[in-house]
């Protein structure tokens, strides 16, 4: 019981995830700045931003539903933190592995997006409402290719749990190369999940002035920002667990490799967000359904065929 509490609150739960999220956000911002020939923030900037937001006054709009308004950021953060517990970090099995944890993970990762939608919707501001509608429209576009891309390797491994997949791919490491198209689809689609350029439409600073979060301030906004930063870590960890399941012996070595893997994913994500313009919502939907989904579908078919051949 005490150990479980330690796992949830301190490591690898809230405290570690929060700290790593701040480091992640710093590296992301620094890379983004350096790719633009700028200096970028100092190492404590994300922490300073977080603390500053905590100290600011929290304003709740008059027409907003107060309980839901306060509940949503906490819910988003809780869902992300819960998801992190099911991802293997230093060894090939997560803390609480079970058959089907991949599905639960994906479900938990959908919750923050729903929270963003509801947050925008309950803010009763026009900007927030449009942002909320965009968040939901976007959800239906990127979620399908993302799920398909993450499930394709699972199909090949014939296991719906991350530990099972890791076990399969550690015996057949060459099969990982087959999953490269799925990896590309997942990396691009998760830009939509993380609401980053080119798919940052729900926030779209220059169009919607912050979109779904326009009415959030102070502590509640700090929690939301933290949830977004944590989501970045969790998604990067998930992609690395599915597509790069390498775990050397020993907890420390495993942990080091985990950090390295997530940083590589972060680098790709930071590069992707710095080299493109934000697309329009109908372009985003068209792109996801025209290119990403078929590509993920081809991957699934290929993996099924391959499995048939192997069997």
């Amino acid at each position: 019981m005490l150990l479980a509490l330690f796992h949830i609150l301190i490591f690898p739960g809230m405290l570690f995830l929060g700290a790593y999220a701040l480091v992640f956000s710093f590296i992301d911002r620094k890379l983004y700045a350096r790719l633009q020939n700028r200096r970028g923030p100092r190492w404590y900037q994300p922490l300073a931003d977080f603390l500053k937001l905590l100290g600011k006054e929290t304003i709740i709009p008059e027409h907003a539903d107060k309980r839901v308004f306060v509940f949503l950021p906490v819910m988003a953060l809780a869902a992300v933190t819960a998801a992190y517990l099911y991802i293997p970090i230093w060894s090939s099995t997560s803390l609480y592995p079970f058959e089907g944890d991949l599905i639960v993970l994906l479900y938990l990762l959908t919750l923050p997006t729903l929270c963003f939608f509801l947050a925008g919707w309950y803010s009763t501001s026009v900007y927030a409402t449009i942002g909320a509608v965009r968040a939901l429209t976007q959800l239906f576009s990127y979620e399908v290719p993302l799920f398909m891309a993450l499930l394709a390797p699972a199909l090949l491994a014939d296991s719906w749990s991350l530990s099972g997949m890791t076990a399969y791919y550690s015996t057949h490491p060459l099969y990982l190369l087959i999953n490269i198209p799925a990896f590309l689809v997942a990396v691009i689609a998760c830009q939509g999940k993380l609401e980053r350029v080119p798919f940052d439409l729900p926030e779209a600073e220059t169009e919607l002035a912050g979109g779904t979060f326009v009415e959030y301030s102070g502590r509640l906004y700090a929690i939301f920002r933290m949830a977004i930063d944590c989501e970045l870590v969790v998604v990067a960890s998930l992609i690395s667990a599915v597509f790069l399941p390498f775990y050397p012996a020993g907890a420390w070595a495993g942990f080091g490799v985990y950090i390295l893997k997530t940083l590589v994913i972060l680098f790709i994500l930071a590069l992707l967000r710095s080299i493109m313009a934000r697309v329009r919502i109908e372009q985003m939907v068209a792109f996801c359904w025209k290119y990403l989904t078929p590509l993920a579908l081809i991957q699934i078919i290929a993996n099924l065929l391959l499995k048939g051949v192997l069997a």
Partner: peptide
């Protein structure tokens, strides 16, 4: 213009 369409990298380079 680049900033308005969310392309901040081009924005930074052209201002540089």
């Amino acid at each position: 213009a680049a900033h308005e369409i969310g392309f901040d990298t081009l924005f930074m380079y052209s201002w540089r």
